[in-house]
Amino acid sequence: SRSVIRSIIKSSKLNIDHKDYLLDLLNDVKGSKDLKEFHKMLTAILA
């Protein structure tokens, strides 16, 4: 869910600018399909 993804971003080791950017992107995501794609992208970034 959106709140879980937000929590993953906030607890990541990324610097604050990257976190803010990803949180802004997350706010722009519409629909469950796009949310799944965003989660895939985030997982790849944090891997």
Rank of each mutant, 00 (worst) to 15 (best):
S1D: 11
S1V: 11
S1Y: 15
S1M: 14
R2Q: 05
R2S: 04
R2C: 04
S3M: 15
S3F: 09
S3K: 11
S3G: 10
S3T: 09
V4F: 13
V4M: 13
V4R: 14
V4N: 08
V4G: 06
I5A: 04
I5Y: 06
I5G: 01
I5P: 01
I5F: 05
I5C: 05
I5M: 09
R6L: 09
R6V: 13
R6K: 10
R6Q: 11
R6S: 08
R6G: 04
R6Y: 07
S7A: 11
S7D: 12
S7I: 07
I8C: 05
I8K: 07
I8R: 06
I8N: 03
I8M: 15
I8Y: 04
I8T: 05
I9M: 01
I9N: 00
I9H: 00
I9C: 01
I9R: 03
K10Q: 11
K10S: 07
K10W: 06
K10I: 14
S11N: 14
S11I: 05
S11D: 09
S11E: 09
S11Y: 11
S12F: 06
S12D: 01
S12K: 02
S12A: 06
S12R: 02
S12V: 03
K13M: 09
K13P: 09
K13F: 09
K13I: 10
K13A: 11
K13C: 06
K13G: 10
L14F: 03
L14V: 03
N15A: 14
N15Y: 06
N15W: 08
I16D: 11
I16L: 10
I16G: 11
D17M: 12
D17L: 11
D17H: 13
D17R: 14
D17P: 07
D17Q: 12
H18W: 12
H18V: 14
H18K: 09
H18T: 13
H18Y: 12
H18R: 08
H18Q: 12
H18G: 04
K19A: 04
K19F: 03
K19D: 01
K19W: 03
K19L: 04
D20F: 10
D20G: 15
D20R: 15
D20W: 15
Y21D: 03
Y21H: 07
Y21W: 09
Y21N: 05
Y21R: 09
Y21P: 00
L22C: 02
L22I: 03
L22S: 00
L22R: 00
L23H: 02
L23S: 03
D24Y: 15
L25I: 06
L25K: 10
L25D: 01
L25V: 06
L26S: 01
L26V: 03
L26N: 00
L26E: 00
L26F: 03
L26T: 01
N27D: 07
N27H: 07
N27P: 02
N27F: 05
N27Q: 10
D28V: 09
D28H: 10
D28Y: 13
V29W: 04
V29T: 09
V29K: 04
K30H: 11
K30G: 06
K30I: 08
K30M: 07
K30D: 06
K30N: 07
K30C: 06
G31L: 07
G31N: 12
G31W: 07
G31Q: 05
G31Y: 08
G31F: 06
S32E: 13
S32R: 09
S32A: 13
S32V: 09
S32P: 12
K33I: 07
K33V: 08
D34F: 09
D34E: 14
D34G: 15
D34Q: 15
D34R: 10
D34H: 11
D34P: 08
L35Q: 02
L35S: 02
L35N: 01
K36W: 10
K36C: 06
K36T: 08
K36S: 08
K36H: 14
K36Y: 13
E37Y: 10
E37M: 13
E37D: 08
E37S: 12
E37W: 15
F38G: 00
F38N: 00
F38H: 01
F38K: 00
F38C: 01
H39M: 15
H39E: 08
H39S: 09
H39G: 08
H39A: 12
K40W: 07
K40F: 06
K40V: 08
M41N: 04
M41I: 07
M41Y: 11
L42Y: 03
L42V: 09
L42D: 02
L42P: 05
T43D: 07
T43N: 10
T43W: 15
T43Q: 11
T43L: 15
T43M: 15
A44C: 06
A44P: 03
A44W: 12
A44T: 10
A44N: 10
A44G: 09
A44F: 14
I45M: 10
I45S: 03
L46V: 05
L46G: 02
L46A: 02
L46H: 01
L46C: 03
L46D: 01
L46N: 01
A47Y: 11
A47P: 04
A47M: 11
A47T: 10
